[in-house]
């Protein structure tokens, strides 16, 4: 059998075999189903991957932050837009973009820092208990303990020492707003601070910046 005869045989065999191929009546439907199924799988994969990446990033950020000493520059790199804010010899680094001491009792919803005792009147704090609040805040206060007032009974409290000054640190997550809340109390300085932010990492950054200035 020469090449031409063999080629003709192969060609004829393939064409005969092709007649037994599937018809493809449901091919389009199968492809459409497959496309949708893969799209769902891809969406799930993207969501789970994003969550894993976010978790890893937060873990990495907290790890870097916890290994950094106050003022050694590492924490500045993690939160470059911070500025110092002092009250009763306690200094914290707070987000520079947040409003400082906005109008008393102004509608809450704006990120703010309040470090003026006159602005911490009870009526101005009332929005803190509302589920509709959206703004983040750092509130310096005197003569009150935020942990029992605002964080509620679910908060956990542990002793803390800052610059040789003993105090307590309470933490909680607000179930209504999802906010991370920390309450720092240093009785010997007659100061307490409420940190109420969306990001646990930011809360940790602010807390870690705490230092006692000249008394």
């Amino acid at each position: 059998m020469n090449d031409e005869q063999l080629g003709a045989l192969v060609s004829g065999s393939l064409r005969a075999q092709a007649a037994d191929a599937p018809g493809g009546a449901h091919l389009l439907q199968a492809v459409t189903t497959g496309v949708r199924r893969k799209a769902v799988i891809r969406r799930r994969w993207v969501v789970s991957s994003s969550a894993a990446i976010a978790l890893a990033a937060v873990s990495l950020g907290l790890g870097l932050w916890s290994s950094a000493r106050p003022g050694d520059g590492t924490q500045q790199a993690a939160a470059p837009s911070l500025r110092p804010s002092s009250f009763h010899h306690l200094q914290l680094e707070v987000p520079a973009s947040w409003a400082l001491n906005p109008e008393p009792c102004s509608p809450h919803g704006r990120d703010r820092v309040i470090d003026h005792p006159d602005l911490l009147q009870v009526p101005c704090l009332t929005p803190l208990t509302e589920a509709t609040r959206l703004g983040q805040q750092v509130l310096f206060s005197t003569g009150r303990t935020f942990s029992t007032t605002y964080l509620g009974p679910a908060a956990t409290t542990r002793p803390i020492t800052i610059g040789g000054v003993s105090g307590t640190l309470s933490s909680s997550t607000n179930e209504q707003t999802g906010m991370t809340e920390f309450a720092l109390a240093l009785p010997s300085l007659d100061v307490s601070v409420l940190i109420d932010v969306r990001s646990p990492a930011l809360a940790e950054t602010i807390l870690h910046s705490a230092r006692v200035t000249g008394q």
């Binding site: 092709a18 037994d20 191929a21 599937p22 199968a30 497959g34």
Partner: peptide, 22 residues
Amino acid sequence: PALLRLAFLLCSDRHLAEDLTQ
């Protein structure tokens, strides 16, 4: 259908040909 025929000739199995084409 032509793609299915080609797939069938390549793998000699109807089900595999359908999977491959899809």
